[in-house]
Design a protein around this nucleic acid. Structure first.
Lengths: 244, 244
DNA sequence: AGTTCAATTTATGGATCCAATGTCAAGAGT
DNA sequence: ACTCTTGACATTGGATCCATAAATTGAACT
């Protein structure tokens, strides 16, 4: 995992500077440390992160395509205001895309190996909650399991455009499926949220197995909102964001 | 196009190397001069285009986000092989995304100005077919009208993630809504296809107006296949080059 | 003869340097 | 006093150079 210390690392870092700059800027924007409309200069960011201008330049172009920053003409870039409505919309888009994946899978049926993969994945999730206890290790386990389930669903759907669209869509904070265990990581008491997410997974696989495509799609659409059930997330968003 | 060192050229015909590389690579891929799966090296492309490696690097990253090239690990990039199955999938994705936009609009209802915009747009489409004759000018008119309708739908939905995801998705040939009038442009006899597409638009707007969200979504999903109705397109695809 | 390990080569990623462009400010003229 | 013009500065975009990592090929050993 990445440490969230910007300039704390010594000169030798195992993570590549390019990825480091991208995830740093993402965190800064998501946490509101870069306020909306605030200008982001290449040189300033490069010096602040202790890297050269080059990874900053590429990172800003990447973040521009992802919509997290906007260009200010020849005046550099600026952090874009991320509203709760936009996160709401991104979750909605993820719902229909993963819903389409579930629909396709239910419609064409699972092969024997695919069904085995799904059952193996679900059993791994089951093992996490079978322990009853829920330490930090279990949270990491759930993070991996959750990502594996969603990746398996999208991958098995046989439509690469779904995965491509999801990759772009998931760059907004709280929009990705990883937000389930990632953004709640400071609250170990959210046991029920993660358990209900696991139950959602089981229900989706059951619907796929019995070839109920509409049910599978509907379940998957509703499951997209698992990360923000409890709606406290949006309070955190609107708190970190001034006026847009 | 070619610059002969004009001292004070009034128009900004100065082509920047970055844009030049991007449009050159797009043309090469579209025209098949870069065959699918063919490896694209930075140095080779830079020397071929007479620029440095830097604009090629940024251009390849941009084209990667657009989905036209894929990474070959640390072995550079490759022109993406576009199969008929991928186009099928991209159309499917466009269907669910625009279906989501229609669903949202029907659920929250149209404002007076939005309804007026939709009616104005539809009447423009109606005017094209009211003439009966269908020359090349009418084809251009339909192209503009079709794009305007889809843009209006996505824009009015109030979910910017839908438009962002569609922008990426529409990079594949025949996946965009523009493919309706663009890729059929050599067949003026396809009058019925375009007319049925216009009827689809009208039906979607009617469903939205009567607040039938499920019908609006379903109609919009089915409408995504309007460009490939008749399935001759896929034969042209499997003939390895769509447009020339 | 096949497989594995190591070394070399090649290509991408990063850093620094240079050029071009746009903006801001200050001064002068009307 | 206001506006226009010009010059200086800051910032992005491009090019070249260097390091690192991966792949391929060759040789040696089993």
């Amino acid at each position: 995992m990445d440490e969230h210390a910007p300039a704390d690392h010594p000169t030798k870092t195992r993570i590549k500077p390019g990825q480091y700059v991208i995830i740093s800027l993402r965190r800064m924007i998501a946490e509101g440390r870069l306020k909306p409309g605030e200008r982001i200069g290449e040189v300033a960011t490069a010096e602040a992160l202790g890297v050269s201008r080059m990874p900053v330049r590429t990172a800003l172009r990447t973040l521009e395509t992802e919509g997290l920053v906007v260009r200010l003409g020849a005046r550099g870039y600026a952090a874009r205001a991320i509203t709760a409505s936009e996160i709401h919309g991104a979750i909605e888009v993820r719902g229909v895309l993963e819903g389409l994946a579930a629909h396709r899978l239910a419609r064409r049926g699972l092969t024997a190996s695919e069904e085995r993969e799904f059952r193996t994945c679900l059993s791994q999730g089951e093992a996490i909650f079978a322990d009853g206890a829920f330490g930090n290790g279990a949270l990491d386990l759930f993070y991996t399991y959750n990502l594996a389930f969603h990746a398996l669903l999208v991958d098995a759907s046989g439509n690469p455009s779904i995965g491509a669209a999801l990759t772009r869509n998931n760059q907004l904070p709280f929009a990705s499926a990883a937000a389930l265990a990632l953004d709640w990581s400071d609250r170990p008491s959210e046991y029920e949220h993660l358990l209900s997410a696991h139950r959602d997974h089981c229900n989706v696989v059951d619907a796929i197995a019995r070839r109920d495509d509409d049910a599978a799609e509907r379940l998957m659409r509703e499951h997209a909102w698992a990360a923000v059930r409890g709606e406290k997330v949006f309070e955190r968003i609107s708190a970190s964001r001034p006026a847009g």
